[in-house]
């Protein structure tokens, strides 16, 4: 089973959670339309320690170097980056739209805050997605309980702080339920 935490050695720094990193790319043409969202998701790797994270991350392209319509999904092991997953069904996400040129720095700041447990919302964080698009890039942070207002507000405040967003930056909360409709 690929979705179990990898082993770590005693001299590594264990993370609170193990994570899996996924990649997806929208395929143009007929084949792309035939493939489900699930079939487009490719597992890149898993990690359970800080050292394993850097080992994986340093071999990856930065988000700004990716082609348009490519996404990275970083989720806790055991949670698939899909609305349909049990952990996401009642959840939602903060959506941050970024003008071109900011995404690599913001993505790194976000995942370091997530791995380091800076959000302080217990089990609530599910994962993060970065989406490279034509005119802008989008970063999303998914959490379990969309109806928990104090948690979603706390996540928003931490997100704004760790991304170093200007007060005018637009942040929007979407429940997965709304996205499905």
């Amino acid at each position: 089973e690929v979705l179990v935490a990898p082993d770590i050695s005693p001299d590594e720094h264990k993370l609170q959670y193990a994570y899996a990193l996924w990649y997806s790319k929208r395929n143009p043409g007929k084949l792309g339309a035939l493939l489900s969202y699930d079939q487009n998701l490719k597992l890149i790797g898993r990690f359970a320690s800080v050292e394993q994270f850097w080992g994986l991350y340093s071999h990856l392209s930065r988000p700004s170097e990716l082609n348009t319509h490519t996404d990275f999904h970083l989720f806790k092991i055991g949670i698939k980056p899909m609305w349909e997953d049990e952990a996401n069904q009642r959840g939602g996400k903060w959506v941050v739209r970024l003008r071109k040129g900011l995404v690599s720095r913001c993505w790194e700041n976000l995942i370091l805050a997530m791995l380091g447990e800076q959000f302080m919302v217990g089990e609530e964080i599910c994962g993060a997605v970065v989406s490279i698009r034509f005119q802008e890039d989008i970063i999303c942070l998914w959490n379990k309980t969309a109806s928990d207002l104090s948690t979603t507000q706390r996540i928003r405040d931490t997100l704004r702080r760790v991304l170093h967003l200007p007060p005018t930056a637009l942040m929007e909360y979407k429940t997965h339920n709304d996205s499905l409709k």
């Binding site: 264990k14 800080v50 850097w54 380091g116 447990e117 800076q118």
Partner: peptide, 21 residues
């Protein structure tokens, strides 16, 4: 139990440790 919390600077410091390569 206790949550494992790491500051950004601490994580960045481990970036170049031999185990991270």
């Amino acid at each position: 139990g206790t949550r494992i919390v790491y500051e950004r600077a601490f994580l960045m410091n481990l970036r170049n440790s031999p185990i991270s390569q």
